[in-house]
């Protein structure tokens, strides 16, 4: 797996999370982010970000982490 896509995916996931932090409830926020990823991301993208989380997912924000874990 190369780095280009993963770098973008981390950035995208964090950005989606940052734009969905208005609920005040992390669980609900993570679910919104997860739903977004389910609805718009390709299979290979979801797979890569899930694999990244399994490896630690260091650069993912807390909500993005929770969301990816839901996938």
């Amino acid at each position: 797996m190369g780095n280009h896509q993963l770098t973008s995916l981390i950035k995208m996931a964090n950005q989606i999370a940052a734009n969905n932090t208005h609920i005040g409830n992390e669980t609900e926020e993570a679910t919104m982010v997860a739903n977004h990823l389910r609805k718009f991301w390709a299979r290979s993208m979801k797979q890569q970000i899930t694999d990244y989380l399994i490896e630690g997912g260091e650069e993912l924000s807390p909500i993005a982490k929770k969301a990816v874990a839901e996938l």
């Binding site: 797996m1 190369g2 780095n3 280009h4 896509q5 973008s8 609805k39 718009f40 991301w41 390709a42 299979r43 290979s44 993208m45």
Partner: peptide, 16 residues
């Protein structure tokens, strides 16, 4: 869903 244009470019650079 499939890849969006920017994701296509990234995947191309990654060789997939």
């Amino acid at each position: 869903p499939g890849l969006r244009i920017p994701n296509m470019f990234d995947a191309a650079l990654d060789g997939t």
